[in-house]
Design a binder for these strands. Structure first.
Length: 824
DNA sequence: AGCACGCCGACT
DNA sequence: GTCGGCGTGCTC
């Protein structure tokens, strides 16, 4: 008996998602071989669903407790994941307490795998005999193509229905046993293309078409030079298809259909040279990585280097070594740094072997890149977090650049961290994991100690340029000294000086937790969003109050809606306001002989596709001095030789967020931005404005003293029981009804406490049910429970059981976030 | 008795 | 997640 284990694609944490199905010997539907990794259509209860094949085997008996196995209805795709990737999905499902189907879905091609829908009422349903599937051998599934399958249960349950005893034919008889509604498979939006090749036959070569058959003769002439694609001919000839068909019918040309090859276009000719002479630190880093790769036992290397220390060169060398050894490489880069500049460095070196996967591509573009990997054309994949799940085989090297950034953690199920999944993969495949950062996360530094990860330092900038000195300006003292400007006198002088020399400046406004808001001076009222528990942000351009979470906007009221006071004051500084003040300040400086260009980069100006790149290009293009003003998005990947001044307008707004990582985030941000100044021969300087000049993250950052920061921060984490000294879990509940949501989470907490007690988890610390800092977002109320467990506790295993047993509450969602990065 | 509705458990 | 079974309770 041929069987297959199938992970049904049904999003439910409570459902055991793996089932065994029979594989019919007479199985002939669809046109794909049944293998591990295939998408299949299977019956489940009264409906049909899609599933993913996890195992194909032959057995006489089945371990599962069912009397009668049901059969797979159709194989819908080629295999999309390997045995190893399947294991990875199991690991993620267990560790992150996520539905297995959600984990395996990560490996599916962009555009998805289609869906099964219920046929509309009255749809003719095939009885008994298998419905012929409108698929010819070798034809791929196309969107909208339908595979109709009888919805009735096979045999048993239909027969089990009691016979109708009534002989009164005027009354409607008992409801028919489960009216068979058909289930229809609809192929995905994206599907692999087919190429139609045309070739001339010997008869065709000898054939001279009649004088009036212009199209036929032209077409045959074109084909005499060699085979051509129908799509190419169609561009050149009108009505090519009909001409082709008539010639095919007469036997003068042949038509062959082939799977389209998604080879990557050779945009840049690769030049396999080293663009720079590498310094000794880079050599040391490279040899450490190559040794790890050669020993092939799954090791990790932390490449710890300031911005400009040449990490990318190290990556390129490591990849080159990996390719030479016949293995392939994945490079993960934060979404924001996936600029054409970054991509060009990889393409410049590895040419058309580089595939690119990130969210700003259209689905079609992503699909093409994915196919190029699937068809083995790509050997280096550069992409965001999810590129980890691309179908690249023989992975020898995984590089995670800017390892510390929080975007590597997915904020929806499965709530995985790319670094941790990559480490699992590296260990399983004996690949080497490289983690690059100027400010490695505390978790990574902990792993260096506990897991014996290698730690190499690129102490200096690659070109020997010193890190720019940082001047801390106490804004409280400035304010006390009579200045009301958001630019301190130190920053003003430095700006003028920089621009006088035709150098460029970067100003960063740390906007997180510091948007512009309105306050009534008489009663203290602040307008809040009616859909979210956030203060509304004032926008200068349209003079409206806007919510950054749901997009709600309202006009700025003339008087306070509560006390009717006309004294509504605008507090804080948005980028627009800073831009206005900056322009006005610059225009008053008589020392500046030209109008200084100001480029503003924030969420508003970068929303359009490629706007980010365009603004950076614009900034780079100025021959005179210029100012780039932006939010934290300017902290990354910006590399301009003539930037000599970096100003951080408000360094400390991230300090006071109610989140245990806020100090680490602040420190990292300062380090990252500071590195933007003086990257070349021109010396740079950094001016850091703050109201908290003496706190550790600011002081340590100002002196580039990371070890002081880490020592202090670790001590604090140990004292308050935060990672890496504990394992944390955040349990989040959300729903449209506030009290029902809170109540559901409180019920969950009761069950949780019982469960922990029964497991002997007495040392776990479990918070009360708390309203999230962002209590309401888009009319949805949010509550959470925070758990701190001993570091060595099997947190996931303990909670997994609980989640599997838990009863769901209508209208309330509960999510488990293992190792949360944000608890807002 | 007949029907509407809502909860609960199965789903291979 | 979705479906159907079955129990409860209301109405004719």
């Amino acid at each position: 008996m041929k069987l297959a284990d199938v992970i049904v694609d049904v999003a439910s944490a409570c459902l055991e998602s793996m089932y065994t199905y029979r594989v019919n010997d007479t199985f002939d539907q669809g046109d794909y071989q049944l293998e591990v990794g295939c998408v299949v259509m299977v019956p489940l209860g009264a409906r049909s669903v899609l599933g993913f094949v996890a195992r194909v085997y032959t057995a006489d008996t089945c371990a599962c407790p069912v009397k009668r196995l049901r059969s797979i209805q159709r194989v819908c795709s080629q295999p999309y994941f390997t045995e190893l990737q399947l294991q990875c999905a199991y690991y993620m499902a267990r560790y992150y307490i996520a539905p297995l189907s959600a984990c395996i879905r990560l490996f599916m091609p962009p555009g998805g795998v289609g869906k099964v829908v219920r046929a509309p009422h009255g749809e003719p349903v095939a009885g008994g005999a298998p419905t012929p599937v409108p698929v010819a051998g070798g034809t791929p599934v196309v969107p909208g193509e339908e595979c109709v399958v009888d919805g009735a249960r096979d045999g048993a349950s239909v027969l089990a229905t009691p016979p109708v005893l009534s002989i009164d034919t005027t009354l409607p008889s008992a409801p028919a046993p489960a009216p068979s509604r058909a289930w229809i498979y609809r192929g995905p939006v994206m599907h692999a293309q087919q190429d139609t090749w045309l070739e001339i036959t010997p008869e065709g070569a000898a054939y001279a078409p009649p004088r009036n058959a212009h199209r036929q003769s032209a077409l045959l002439d074109a084909l005499r030079a060699g085979p051509l694609l129908l799509s190419e001919l169609a561009l050149q000839f009108d009505r090519a298809t009909s001409t082709v068909n008539s010639l095919v019918k007469k036997g003068f040309i042949t038509k062959t259909v082939q799977a389209h090859s998604y080879a990557l276009s050779n945009v840049n000719q690769p030049h396999y040279t080293r663009p720079f002479q590498l310094n000794e630190h880079q050599h040391a880093a490279i040899s450490c990585i190559t040794q790890c790769m050669d020993s092939a036992c799954g090791q990790a290397v932390v490449v710890d280097g300031v911005t400009g220390s040449g990490k990318t060169e190290v990556y390129l060398e490591a990849i080159a070594h990996c390719l030479q050894a016949g293995k392939n490489a994945i490079v993960l880069v934060p979404e924001i740094s996936l600029t054409p500049q970054t991509v060009a460095r990889f393409r410049g070196r590895f040419g058309n072997m580089v595939a690119l996967l990130h969210s700003r591509l259209t689905t079609k573009e992503r699909f093409e890149q994915w196919q190029s990997i699937y068809q083995h054309h790509a050997r280096v994949v550069v992409g965001a977090r999810s590129a980890l799940f691309c179908p690249l085989r023989d992975i020898g090297l995984i590089i995670i650049d800017e390892e510390h950034v929080e975007t590597y953690k997915q904020e929806a199920a499965p709530r995985y961290h790319a670094r941790d999944v990559a480490w699992w993969m590296a260990q399983q495949t004996a690949a080497t994991l490289v983690l690059g950062s100027a400010t490695p996360s505390l978790e990574t530094l902990e792993a260096v100690k506990r897991e014996n990860w290698h730690h190499v330092k690129l102490a200096t900038r690659a070109n020997g340029a010193p890190m720019p000195p940082i001047t801390v300006v106490d804004m409280a003292a400035e304010f006390g000294g009579g200045s009301r400007s958001m630019f301190s006198r130190t920053l003003q002088q430095a700006l003028v000086h920089t621009l006088q020399h035709n150098h460029k400046a970067v100003l960063m406004l740390n906007q997180r937790g510091f948007a512009r808001f309105v306050l009534c001076r008489d009663c203290g009222y602040t307008p809040e969003c009616t859909h979210c528990s956030t203060k509304l942000t004032f926008h200068e351009v349209n003079h409206r109050l806007m919510c950054h979470h749901c997009g709600y906007s309202a006009p700025l009221p003339a008087v306070c809606p509560v006390c009717k006071s006309p004294y509504l004051k605008k507090f804080g500084a948005g980028t627009q306001r800073v831009e206005a003040e900056l322009r006005s300040f610059l225009s008053q400086q008589i020392e500046l002989t030209y109008e200084v260009p100001v480029v503003r980069m924030d969420a508003d100006t970068t929303s359009a596709r490629y706007a980010h790149e365009r603004l950076l290009d614009e900034f780079a293009s100025f021959e005179t001095g210029a100012v780039l003003l932006g939010t934290q998005m300017i902290a990354k990947g910006l590399d301009f030789k003539d930037v000599t001044l970096v100003g951080i307008i408000n360094a400390d707004t991230t300090l006071n967020l109610p989140d245990y990582r806020s100090h680490e985030r602040t420190f990292n941000l300062i380090e990252q931005v500071a590195g933007r100044a003086g990257r070349d021969v021109l010396p740079g300087r950094v001016i850091l404005q703050t109201y908290n000049p003496h706190v550790l993250p600011i002081q340590a950052a100002a002196h580039y003293d990371r070890s002081a920061f880490i020592t202090g921060e670790l001590e604090k984490r140990r004292q308050f029981g935060y990672p890496p000294f504990t394992s944390c879990v955040n349990i989040l509940a959300w729903g449209a009804q506030k009290e029902a949501t809170r109540h559901a989470l409180e019920q969950f907490r009761v069950v949780l406490m019982d469960h922990l007690a029964s497991k002997g988890c007495t040392t776990w610390w479990v918070s009360d049910v708390l309203a999230c800092v962002l209590e309401k977002v888009r009319e949805i109320y949010r509550f959470h429970i925070f758990i701190k467990a001993p570091r060595e506790a099997a947190v996931s295993a303990v909670l997994y059981e609980l989640v599997r047993k838990r009863k769901t509450v209508a209208g309330v969602n509960i999510a488990i976030d293992v190792d949360p990065l944000s608890v807002m």
